[in-house]
Design a protein around this nucleic acid. Sequence first.
DNA 1: GGCAAATGTCGACACGAGTCGATTACTCTT
DNA 2: AAGAGTAATCGACTCGTGTCGACATTTGCC
Lengths: 338, 338
Amino acid sequence: MAKRSDVAQRAGVSESTVSYVITGTRPIGQETKARVLKAMAELGYKPNAMAQALRSGNSKMLAMLFGDQERGISDGDIEYVIAAADEARKYGYHLILWPVRRRAIEDVIKKAESGLLDGVILMEVSLKDERVALLKKHKVPFGLIGRTQNKLDTVFADRDFETATRLAIEELVVLGHTKLVALSTSNETVAGQIGATIRFEDAVEDVAKELKVQIDILHAENTIQSGLDSAKDFVKKYKNRTAVVSVNAEALIGFSRGLQRAGFSIPDDVSLICISTTPAGSLAFDPPLTIVSPPASEIGAAAARELIHALQGKPDDEPTKLFVGELLRRESTSRYKK
Amino acid sequence: MAKRSDVAQRAGVSESTVSYVITGTRPIGQETKARVLKAMAELGYKPNAMAQALRSGNSKMLAMLFGDQERGISDGDIEYVIAAADEARKYGYHLILWPVRRRAIEDVIKKAESGLLDGVILMEVSLKDERVALLKKHKVPFGLIGRTQNKLDTVFADRDFETATRLAIEELVVLGHTKLVALSTSNETVAGQIGATIRFEDAVEDVAKELKVQIDILHAENTIQSGLDSAKDFVKKYKNRTAVVSVNAEALIGFSRGLQRAGFSIPDDVSLICISTTPAGSLAFDPPLTIVSPPASEIGAAAARELIHALQGKPDDEPTKLFVGELLRRESTSRYKK
DNA sequence: GGCAAATGTCGACACGAGTCGATTACTCTT
DNA sequence: AAGAGTAATCGACTCGTGTCGACATTTGCC
């Protein structure tokens, strides 16, 4: 590979002049610059990334901690990662995928201290995430997908669960439904300790009060089987309800199947709407599911962008770090028929 | 961060001695080594990754080209990536996720030539993959997930579609089915140009001859809708068939739904088996789908391992680069009832 | 016309580690 | 007892780039 000294020699200038042409740190004469650029093109010169990293002190590498925990990997998760990787690349950064089994954040910290990583993006952030504390302690820059309880952690991007939930419920109410059930997550699980659950449930209660509709909350594990069980509960206790809003996509698969087996028709007897299924995933339901889609790409990209801005010392002027998603009307919802 | 000279000073030795303690390139005295190790521990010394990369000439970084093409991202794909990342880390390598829209392999080559990447892993390799030619031309080391037609591309890991297909069909034949349909991919699509389709169809024909059973092939796009259409074809043309083997997971969703709508019961009237659905995905079917699971983790890990071995100049002694997966009996298959 | 400021260029050094050659002090042959 | 070989250590150089200080040249201004 051609290096800087080759370019300098060919262009008949000093190495530092080549450097200044590249970085633009100092003014360079028209004609000199042209000669240097020509030499670079002719030699196919590409600055050595490792040398740049060593000299400049930043590797332009971010690690994305990809949870591989009990919760499992949902098909939507990859969308965050891809969006973050794309966005990072726009700024000249690269995303290292870091699957972490059993919270091995120490490894990541080591690698950050060894200069391999400039920062870390965390997924599946829980309300009190001990990983955040560790990263802070070791002064490793980080960005969050999700939020902790701590409002000082300002480098994050998250879903606006409140508004998404509101959108979903309003849609049902507009369709004439007044007696609803909310299908949530089990609070004891890992998933339950992530902001989604608590924020969803809070929003459900707020909106219920505000719109004066009746909404009871059913809890289910993140499994199809648990959703089937919940359907039985529904049939037992909430037969008179005509609509369900869910934050638990996995359980909803079992739930809708359970309802149909019990003789309920969707959407004729019960309308379903989910705020955590992807557009592609919604088609796997029968009938196709009405959803408020999670804006995974926006969130992933925003998290990466926020972190990079923080690394570059730019002021935190991001106007929106919360993303709602949009309502996609499919065939699991219909007007209330008395 | 503490650096090598700090350690040397604290241990009262020269910098090169510290280096030899770390690399083991030359013998170091017992007591000296102990002093150096103590100093390293006390200072929390971590060798700078970028300096090592610059000096040694390899970055220990691999790029994983993650297709983001028409075919879309299936939920199983992430498993390859995670497995590859895990395996790479075992060898001290890191995996950079590289989403490529419209085959921008040139970028990757540039970054490899700039010393950022030691090698590249390609996913969704088609039989004649022009990316492979480009990487060869620029002498960028690569490993494949999948295979080209060229048998000289020996750094790869792929599914043994032949055996997987055979397993699936044998299972159905053992259950007494003799009149089958194979649900394949449409040859005009991107997916159709990947080895899976042609190898599946070849295997279907071979096994059909060998076991003297009747198998006709239905083609469908990789969409639920296309699967629904195929179900109509099935009802029209193949009413007397009692079992279906599919390589097209997406279409099979629509296909099974279509059959059920047409009044067929699964598995009482028709048995279904799929060779390209993940264990988790199979549960989303109703009834849960019998599958020959794609061994994504093994393949992803093997691809990474193969590439790293090649980079380290180790002889290519990997015994198996083809992985079958295993039969998981669920509830979509049953004994033939005449 | 003179002096400050800006422009254009160069040489030298630093970033932090790997590695070769040389030096010293031993041990083992014959 | 002399020479050969090995263990242990050091100093100097190198990987390829970024950047500071110095110097030369030009521009701007009253």
